Amino acid sequence: MKISAAVAGASGYAGGELLRLLAMHPGVAVKTVTGSSSVGRSLGELQPHVHALRDLRIEETSPDTLAGHDVVFLALPHGSSGAIAAELGEESLVVDAGADFRLESAGAWEEFYGGSHAGTWPYGLPELPLAEGGRQRSRLKGARRIAVPGCYPTSSLLALAPGFRAGLLEPADVVIVSASGTSGAGKAMKPHLMASEAMGSMSPYGVGGVHRHTPEIEQGLSWAAGEGVSVSFTPTLAPMPRGILTTATARVRPGTDAAAVREAWASAWEGEEFVRLLPEGQWPATQSVLGSNYVHTQAALDPRTGRVIASVALDNLAKGTAGAAVQSMNIALGLEETLGLTGGGLAP
């Protein structure tokens, strides 16, 4: 029998991407989709690209509606998952695509998000190398609750974690700049996301260390380094529907050469299906990973300044959100980790 799944927040971008991937997953049957203002409408009306599930009707998002499924995906606004998850039993694997359970520090949550901290769940970035050895994958096996990483943190952690785990990078003076497509801001109408405002233009936002993903990036890099890492993070809005290109730089420790950098990144991603280190001299491009769960990365040493420059391209809705959720589900339920996720990117 197939795994029964429910998706809350089915009308949004993250919910739509989850449904697209789950509809192609050979081991999952989506039984329930929920929303708020869209209750009663057909999924085909709201997510017309998910052909296989077009006849499902949007139901109210409530614990009663979501209960009884093998897996429940929560693709809800930040701060909305905690109360619902608290009412769901351990018989359901709950995978939260929001931020409610990502942070270990209640203080960081209150500072960057406001309100009460709902708690901390295992972090759904399987490939993340840890300072004590192993990877985050081991913490997801058999889990009943999983927090999917943010899209910016996913790209930032995959960019620099190899260098921190190998002990090559200094934990201070880390600078990360990311460009994201407009879908990263969600589906709600906002003037600055209108085509006439966003197309043909780029702009930074969340400048000055105030973006909500900053503590999550520092948390994950600290797990890889085995010590506290401080980060200056600046996101930018790019004129494209989806995709993230992150460029990260950090000071190297004395004695680190280009060969050591290449070895650290190659060793970190050897054997990983979804994170690919490109050949030397080839740099990531968002188009190469569009619509896929794959990540392209590259790193180089600038010997003049003593800094590593690492770049990552991923699809913010796939590996950055929904793909990570499905990948984590596969691990937690003992399925093949790559099941339903090995489709390539779209080009041109």
Rank of each mutant, 00 (worst) to 15 (best):
S292Q: 10
G226R: 12
E45K: 00
H192G: 00
H213C: 13
R145G: 05
K31S: 14
A97S: 10
V207G: 03
P26I: 03
E59P: 01
W223R: 10
V174S: 06
G345C: 09
T65V: 13
H49T: 08
R307Q: 10
A172T: 11
P279G: 05
R307K: 10
G291Q: 10
S155M: 05
P284T: 09
L169V: 00
D257L: 05
G134L: 09
Y123W: 14
R137H: 15
A332G: 06
A108W: 00
F274I: 03
F164R: 07
G115S: 09
D100E: 04
L128N: 08
H51A: 14
A23F: 02
V72Y: 06
E218I: 08
A14N: 05
D257T: 01
G79T: 07
G345I: 07
S11F: 02
A195Y: 08
L56Q: 02
H213L: 03
E272M: 07
I84Q: 04
G345R: 11
S196Q: 13
A322I: 05
A310K: 03
D96E: 13
S201Q: 12
S37N: 10
T182N: 05
K31R: 15
V72H: 10
F164D: 02
R57E: 07
G228H: 12
G79L: 06
C151H: 13
P254I: 01
S80G: 03
E170M: 10
V72A: 11
V7T: 00
Q298T: 09
S156Q: 12
C151M: 14
E336H: 10
G40C: 07
F112G: 04
E45V: 01
A347C: 09
E60N: 05
E91G: 14
S156N: 14
P241H: 07
F233H: 14
I84N: 09
R135G: 11
E273T: 14
R102L: 12
D70S: 14
G44E: 02
P129E: 02
P26R: 04
S288K: 12
V326N: 14
H49A: 13
A118S: 15
G281E: 06
L333P: 02
S288V: 00
S38A: 14
Y13C: 00
Q219M: 15
V210R: 14
A264L: 04
G16A: 01
A172Q: 13
